[in-house]
Design a protein around this nucleic acid. Structure first.
Lengths: 293, 293
DNA sequence: TTGCTCCTCACGTCACGTGAGGTGGC
DNA sequence: TTGCTCCTCACGTCACGTGAGGTGGC
């Protein structure tokens, strides 16, 4: 073992980590020098530590949080380590996909605006459903949504004659206003008794989705752009002074388990409104919210 | 114009920007409400502002800094705006490329280490060169390097019998230790009088690159990984207690103007060492630093 | 001995989020 | 009137960087 202890400046030149960064990593316990002179406070690193420092640099280059880097470089079990790395690489993939769709979405936003889409009013009746509910962060919503769909489908698969309409979602306004709030995914099962779904089956429970008056606008394509439809719909509702409390609804006119291309998705957004007085609103016979009305 | 003023909460639901974020954007002057009640401080937004908010969301999704987003959304000239956007999209491309190479580099680091490469000692004589020098941030080094190469090549193109050796670089240690420092790119032109390159021609100037003793290690491939070679070389030099002051040198045994695939690059890294006493070091006849020695 | 390297400590940066404590609006 | 919405202000987060003021090592 011909290792040598070097000063922080020398170690910095060897690893291309700045002196400030090395002191920071010492403070947060990510990379401690092998020796610290108790009198002067001088840090001494071993040439042994160069490979570790190089790995740390790579992980940080990939924006892995410092806490996770610490877990990776101190992991004794290679399987644990590899799992952490794989999880992070997946995260990078997700970010890349997100960036791609944001670029596409920006391009389409900069084109001349699409003609105003048709908004309709709809009275939706209460429906018995099976549902999953959670308080979630807006940032995690997409992941939550797809795993929730799978959970629901698994439970409903064994039931007869179900579902009786398209799946839907309820999203509390705090989810958008504060970035965290209640989200519910439901599948209408009608009034047939549902064997095997008692008050609780795993996280899936029965619930009666309440009746509501909605202004409804169709959103085509992936949900990265769904804020555009919310904007158009909210503008309409508030300019007509008919906003009402309660969660926003979404109705999924596709099955994400079989339609894997989000470009083919069709979603209806329903914004709660005050019941129309002196206005004739449709009897709820449109195809989309049928399962609910 | 059927616009309506809405509260911050309503605007938040319409745009999917949180209330906290909207207040922040007001504070930093990115998106001001059309009206603020002077008595209560209540913010009121116009439904007109929804499209702008949606754009802001897209730009921020793409990690465009708030200051730039402000410039983009307040730009009156579409050409200016488009240029800002294009610049940012280029930045994203660079980041993507950087991430890709960091992933590749991580994979190779996790493989069993490559056999130790051969380090040689070399005495390099002083050489007359043309050069560009700047104090640069380490983060900008790659960009600086390629544009500097172009500048040098342009000036040298008209000279006869030049260059007399491969291009090289000098990098002050502060560049690595503090993330900012002096960097020099040079092309040896020998002792022939160089017409047209006086003391100054644009940023290109003549300089005598001084003689030095070096430990030299070859680095193959793109420079994203160059810290690995610095680590191996620095470890060797310091374990033998022969570190010397002065900038690190690089010698580029390829022409980046013609070899566009960085996988084919071959770079020599030279770390200053104390002149060998009682050790026979090569006479400097190796091919790489020949132009300098 | 000079000056170069290293040290600590407090604060700054960026884009928000958290949370306390309080008031206005329907 | 209740409680829900909105407000400000101060501080926290993350991963460092900046800069002042001071000491150690060759």
């Amino acid at each position: 073992m011909t290792t040598t202890n070097v000063t922080i400046g020398e170690f910095s030149q060897m690893t291309h980590l700045t002196v400030k960064t090395l002191r920071h990593y010492h403070r947060v316990g990510l990379l401690a020098p092998v020796d610290v002179d108790p009198r002067t406070g001088y840090r001494y690193y071993s040439t042994d530590q160069v490979p570790t420092a190089q790995l740390i640099r790579r992980y940080r280059d990939l924006d892995m949080p410092v806490g996770e880097v610490r877990a990776v470089v101190t992991a004794t079990d290679p399987a644990t380590r590899d799992a952490l790395i794989a999880t992070h690489l997946d995260r990078l993939q997700d970010q890349l996909a997100h960036t791609r769709s944001a670029v596409a979405s920006l391009r389409s936003l900069l084109e001349p605006a699409d003609p105003n889409r048709r908004i309709e009013h709809r009275s939706v009746a209460a429906t018995t459903s099976v549902a999953v509910s959670d308080t979630v962060d807006a940032a995690d919503l997409a992941r939550w949504w797809s795993s929730g769909f799978t959970e629901l489908a698994d439970v409903v698969a064994g039931l007869e004659g179900t579902p009786t309409g398209p799946a839907g979602g309820l999203f509390a306004k705090e989810l958008f206003e504060h970035g965290r709030g209640r989200a519910t995914l439901f599948l209408p099962v009608g009034d047939v008794p549902v064997h095997g779904v008692g008050p609780d089956q795993g996280r899936v429970h029965r619930m009666v989705v309440p009746a509501v008056e909605l202004a409804v606008l169709v959103h085509d394509g992936p949900h990265d752009d769904v804020d555009l439809t919310y904007g158009a719909l909210g503008t309409y509702v508030l300019e007509h002074g008919m906003g009402a409390p309660g969660p926003v609804r979404e109705s999924y006119l596709f099955d994400p388990a079989t339609v894997s291309d989000p470009d083919l998705w069709r979603t209806e957004i329903g914004w709660p409104i005050t019941p129309a007085v002196g206005t004739v609103s449709g009897p709820g016979s449109s195809p989309s919210f049928d399962g609910i009305s």
